[in-house]
Write a protein that binds this DNA or RNA. Structure first.
Length: 631
RNA sequence: GCCGACGUAGCUCAAUGGUAGAGCAAUUGAUUUGUAAUCAAUAGGUUGGGGGUUCAAGUCCUCUCGUCGGCUCCA
């Protein structure tokens, strides 16, 4: 037996992991789970010969998973005690917690969670030993037949033939479970039920909806508190809250999912699009504008009528059907097709800040993150088949360059052929392999997302996280062999004949709305100077300095900075507080001393009082921050 | 769309089925202020909307709209 500290040890045959675990926990009480050759393993199993053994605590992914998975069993156990007729779904550990799905006879409400918590505490106190039982498929089926658990029966029937079927048992509670678990319930030290929500059985909306109870568990009350506090802090960065407080945008009943940008939000929008244009011109993109409303025939040709109709809005003009565009691609196709192309013209990169409307389900709307009308920083690249790899690579580079400016961390996913897709399996395989090879070449870590591609092709998605760690898709690169066929796009090749170009759809920001939401949360409302709606505010101390303050203000405005002046009859502290709350980067306090010296007293929102300096110095510093987009 | 919760002044929140209230913001006045809230006064509401129960509804029932947390979906 090799131990994780590199030492080797010999144990008699038949020694269980538990024996060794007891020996180890005597030294370190925080250990939770055993890894045999790197894999989690049940403690009651005998130690396999010649393996490497490691014991891990809560601060490893495996340890936390075992810990929280056990908490989810305690939850199910408590629910079973309180509601004997409840049917069990599944109950895994997830990032930061766990959940369990139940079908109740009568739906419970969030008020019932405290009762369930109480029962869970009881079970923990009872120090119920947790035992693993392996059984044949037949006896497992019989067991859950007797216990009237239809969902468990369905799970057992769907398990592959060679799976070892195991159950975990504590007191009279038994659950189908691969394990492993903690040895007893007392080891769960601190937990809290955090939410109640509906969830379709097996995530399929055709299946019945179960009630999902969310919770989290930590090895100590302090760490639980710490986590809950962190969540509270994160909520202060919520873009919906900051959006209102900083007067960036508003949402109204009159337009659900159709956000209103106020001046402050619009300023950020402008800066973002200005920067975007600079980068895209540099990367040899053209920019177009296409109509919002287009004839039904176009959508039939593009395939949207068949594949995307449920999400589209319609209108009738002169007795003819029109649709409000849900995507920009058909417009770009028409632009491409409006002239002849030589192979020498390709690749042709056509960008468009395109406004699209999609009828998203009402329950999915979420501030600016998920709306029904949004502006995509779209581009369609028309290219020779041989140019695909270099174009995809160039987009990834541009994406990384731009995300870096904001200081974003992102995750990459590769999405493959969905259920309702256009085109042949061969085309899909070819396209998917191509994207994969670019990712491999660039040595980018990515997650495979089976069946999540667009209906016209596979895609590489770039995900960013919001203040609560929820992930949102922003950038995407979608390969498309379909649109060129549908629109009969051609170019004249070297041979003088007509050939089919390949199309890539791509966005980098994703949508302006979602990007702005993420930026608000990313910066907690304290935007870098180049994006800040107000960059500098001038604060006169008394009305004796109003005239000088006005000169300073005019000067800054003349330099093209976004500046305000606070001439209200209030004390300096009050004005400073307000500017701080509004997260204005620079406050210039001018009183008798500054009038005298011809300087300004600079206060930075993070660094505080920086003392007096010449206005020209301050202007130089602010402009440098703007130009270099310093975060 | 589905499940659960919520909706009171611009914002944050009070109000056993019995006269809708506070703080901040706003307005007016006083105060001339030096690095995160000066004092006082005033105004502000068909309690999201419709219907019902009741002598009486912010509160109970019902429909509806919106919001929040999830599921599904997605930029």
């Amino acid at each position: 037996m090799k131990l994780d500290n590199g030492k080797e040890a010999v144990y008699p045959e038949g020694t269980t992991c538990m024996d060794l675990f007891k020996e180890k926990t005597a030294e370190n009480k925080e250990l939770l789970a055993v890894l045999i050759d790197g894999k989690e393993c049940d403690l009651n199993l005998p130690l396999p010969a010649n393996s490497t053994v490691a014991f891990v605590g809560f601060d490893t992914p495996q340890g936390a998973e075992v810990y929280r998975h056990t908490a989810s069993h305690i939850l199910a156990h408590a629910v079973k005690r309180l509601y004997p007729d409840v049917k069990l779904g599944i109950g895994p550990a997830i990032e930061n917690g766990f959940y369990y799905d139940f079908e109740f006879e009568e739906p419970i409400s969030s008020d019932d969670l405290s009762e369930i918590e109480k029962e869970m505490k009881k079970i923990i106190k009872e120090r119920q030993p947790i035992r693993r039982r392996e059984m044949s498929r037949e006896s497992a089926l019989q067991l859950f037949e007797e216990r009237a658990e239809p969902y468990k029966l369905e799970l057992i029937r769907d398990l592959p033939a060679d799976t070892v079927i195991s159950c975990y048992e504590q007191d009279d509670f038994i659950d189908l479970c691969a394990g492993p678990h903690l040895p007893n319930t007392r080891m769960v030290k601190a937990f809290k039920l955090t939410g109640l929500a509906g969830a379709y059985w097996r995530g399929d909306e055709r299946n019945p909806m179960l009630q999902r109870i969310y919770g989290t568990a930590f090895p100590s009350k302090e760490r639980l508190e710490q986590y809950l506090n962190m969540l509270e802090e994160a909520k202060k960065r919520d873009h919906r809250k900051l959006g209102r407080e900083l007067e960036l945008f508003s949402l109204h009943e009159e337009g659900p999912g159709f956000p209103f940008f106020h001046n402050n939000g619009a300023v950020i929008w402008q800066e973002l699009t200005d920067y975007w244009r600079v980068e895209h011109r540099r990367a040899d993109y053209e920019e177009i504008k296409t109509p919002l409303i287009l004839n039904r025939s176009l959508w039939e040709q593009s395939g949207h009528w068949d594949h995307y109709r449920d999400n589209m809005y319609f209108s009738k003009i002169d007795e003819q059907d029109f649709a409000i565009k849900p995507m920009n691609c058909p417009g770009a196709m028409l632009v491409y097709r409006s002239k002849m192309h030589s192979y020498r013209d390709l690749p042709r990169r056509i960008a468009e800040m395109g406004i699209v409307h999609r009828h998203e389900l009402s329950g999915t709307l979420h501030g600016l993150m998920r709306v029904r009308s949004f502006t995509q920083d779209d581009a369609h690249i028309f290219m020779l088949p041989g140019q695909v790899e270099s174009e995809v690579a160039a987009i990834i580079d541009l994406m990384d360059r731009i995300y870096r400016v904001f200081g974003f961390q992102y995750r990459v996913e590769l999405s493959t052929r969905p259920g309702k897709a256009m085109g042949t399996a061969e085309m899909w395989d070819k396209a998917t392999n191509l994207l994969e090879s670019v990712l491999e070449d660039k040595e980018i870590d990515y997650r495979l997302n089976e069946g999540d591609g667009a209906f016209y092709g596979p895609k590489i998605d770039f995900h960013l996280e919001d203040c609560l760690g929820r992930s949102w898709q922003c950038g995407t690169i979608q390969l498309d062999f379909q649109m060129p066929e549908k629109f009969d796009l051609t170019y004249i090749g070297e041979d003088g004949g007509k050939h089919r170009p390949v199309v890539i759809h791509r966005v980098i920001y994703g949508s302006m709305e979602r990007l702005i939401a993420l930026l608000i949360e990313h910066y907690g409302g304290a935007f870098p100077v180049w994006l800040a709606p107000t960059q500098v505010t001038v604060i006169p101390v008394t009305d004796r300095s109003h005239e000088y303050a006005r000169q300073v203000y005019d000067h800054l405005k003349g330099e093209g900075l976004r500046v305000t002046i606070d001439q209200r009859n209030e004390k300096v502290g009050y004005k400073i507080r307000e500017a701080q709350v509004k997260k204005v980067p620079y406050m210039l306090i001018v009183g008798d001393r500054e009038v005298e010296s011809g300087q300004v007293a600079v206060r930075h929102r993070d660094q505080g009082d920086l003392g007096a300096e010449d206005l020209s110095n301050l202007i130089g510093r602010v402009k440098k921050e703007v130009d270099e987009k310093i975060i």
